[in-house]
Structure formats: structure tokens, C-alpha cells
């Protein structure tokens, strides 16, 4: 037996002072953890890289270009009359994620479809002018998107995302 047990009151007596001190140690430890967690969030320079400008004058109907925005691909597709027609005429009930074509392009700019080139399933980049609906087809797990970038068939749960963008002029758009 050690010196400790010679004390009459036993070794495990707790009192308010000791508990308070322990609580301070706990709070301090938790506070110290936060900077180590937060450092993995996007840094200030990453957050600042918000917008990309694109000159779209060279894109012909039936063509699509891929632009890098915040490290992700953005498809800018100039749709043909037939493609627009195909997108508009779909019955809403056939869509897993119902959205009209009108909601997916800027007013009066039905020709121009701008979507994030990231499959909503698990993040692969879909192939253009492919799949059963001639919109996009994701080779990873077989998701089919139509000419409005809406999911029609396959495992993806949602339509291709439309990023925030605006027309600066008729031939210039700013994404983000």
C-alpha cells in the first residue's frame, strides 16, 4: 500500500474544485481542436476564385464546349431547334426530377444550355451527344440525360446542376 491510502478519506473523493478544473481542461482541449478541423475547409484564395468569363461567339448550333470553373467542368451547349423541341415536349411525369426546360435556361436564350458537367450520381463527367436521349451519358454507371441535362434513366437522382451565370453580352457569359 502506498502513502495515498494512509489518507482516511480514500483516494477517489471528488469535489467541486477538481471537477471545475477538469471541465476547463476539457473545454480547452475542444477549443484547441477547432483550428485543426477548420484548416481543411476551403482557404480564402479558393473561396475568392468565384467567376469565369467565357466568350461563346465561336460555338455553332449543335456544338458544346467544356470550361473549367472552380476546378469543375461546365458544359456550354448551343442547342439546335430539334434538341430544344425534344427537351420542351417531354411529359413532366416521365421525369424522375421534374423540371421544365424553361427553368433550365435564361429567358429568351433557349439556344444556350449551361450545366455543370458532373453526374449527380457519383461525380463522373458525362459524355456529350450520347445516351438514349442524345443529351449526355455517364459512362461510369450508365445515367442518361436529355438535351436539357435532365436525368431520364439510370442511377443518378437529379438533373445536371445549372450553375449561377449571366449573359454579359450576347456573346459573353460570366459563370459564378
Amino acid at each position: 500500500m502506498s502513502a495515498a491510502s494512509h489518507g482516511g478519506d480514500g483516494g477517489e473523493r471528488r469535489d467541486f474544485l477538481v471537477i471545475t478544473a477538469g471541465a476547463f481542461v476539457g473545454v480547452g482541449a475542444v477549443g484547441l481542436v477547432w483550428p485543426f478541423v477548420d484548416q481543411m475547409n476551403p482557404s480564402a484564395d479558393v473561396l475568392a476564385l468565384s467567376s469565369t468569363e467565357v466568350d461563346i461567339s465561336g460555338i455553332e448550333p449543335g456544338q458544346s464546349v467544356t470550361i473549367s470553373w472552380r476546378g469543375k467542368p461546365v458544359f456550354v451547349r448551343r442547342r439546335t431547334e430539334a434538341e430544344i423541341e425534344a427537351a420542351v415536349s417531354v411529359d413532366m411525369d416521365d421525369l424522375p426530377d421534374p423540371q421544365s426546360d424553361l427553368e433550365r435556361h435564361k429567358d429568351g436564350k433557349a439556344e444556350w444550355l449551361v450545366v455543370l458537367g458532373i453526374c449527380t450520381h457519383l461525380g463522373c463527367v458525362p459524355l456529350g451527344f450520347a445516351g438514349e436521349y442524345d443529351g449526355w451519358f455517364c459512362p461510369c454507371h450508365g445515367s442518361h440525360y436529355d438535351t436539357s441535362g435532365r436525368i431520364r434513366k439510370g442511377p443518378a437522382p437529379a438533373n445536371l446542376e445549372v450553375p449561377e451565370y449571366e449573359f454579359l453580352t450576347d456573346t459573353q457569359i460570366k459563370i459564378g
Partner: peptide, 26 residues
């Protein structure tokens, strides 16, 4: 956040000091 390359090491340390969340503290 650090990059071990002669042309980037100094810059990456400044990146830590200026842009990374709590980077200066760490």
C-alpha cells in the same frame, strides 16, 4: 498545405499564413 519544391515552398508557407483557415496559428 505545404509544397516541398524550391519554386513553391516559400509561396506555400505564405499561403498558409494568409489564406488557410487558422494557418497562421498552426
Amino acid at each position: 498545405h505545404y509544397t516541398a519544391h524550391t519554386s513553391l515552398a516559400f509561396d506555400s508557407v505564405e499561403h498558409i499564413m494568409r489564406d488557410v483557415n487558422y494557418g497562421w496559428l498552426l
